[in-house]
Amino acid sequence: MIVAEQKKLDEILRMVAPYERVLILGCGTCVTVCGAGGEHEVSYLHNALKVAQRKSGNGTHALSEYTLKRQCDPEFLDMLAGRVEDVDAVLSLACGIGVQAVSERFRQLPVLPGVNTSFMGMPKEWGIWDERCAACGDCRLAETGGICPITRCTKGILNGPCAGTKSGKCEASREMDCAWVQIYQRLEGLRQLDSMRRYYPPRNFRVIPRPRRIVAKSTAGGNDGQVAA
């Protein structure tokens, strides 16, 4: 799931400063799960902004709040139509996708990001999230015992461990496990250590064509039973 973190309040305050009427827009999916932009956080931010206004003494913003089930689907965004007419900006607490989706749907409206979209990951426990996937587009987890070296090794090397590993920890941080030691141990348990002995040629991430697009649907052919690829 996408994990995000709410931006610092002073940055948010600077962003919203030019606008009088601001809609704080939450998203009910990923950012709700990671506690960055669900209904709870929308309400908290709303209150925090009001405290800020009270403190500065120039309460000029008219704030409103609203939470969509998902901001990254146009059909959900249709539900916003009546609500954005009388606002000057939308402060979206969705991930970067949601912010862009709202912006694309309501082109006349400034859409401000309220969170920093951080990574794709999972919770370690309540209140702690870890990155797990880099969306590299070429998954090799079958060969690495289900542990991704690209996200979990600081260097992201494909043939590890490097010389910086010590007692199973990474040289970059003693708190951090060396991903390649973990891969080794996992493969050992799976009796697949021969995977370690293979060499994986370096990948050129620069050639990934961006933006990527996945086309699942086919272009329909004629009525003669043929389907174009």
Partner: peptide, 9 residues
């Protein structure tokens, strides 16, 4: 309802 939308009010 569907969409899960609501405002504070």
């Amino acid at each position: 309802t569907a969409g899960g939308i609501r405002t504070q009010t």
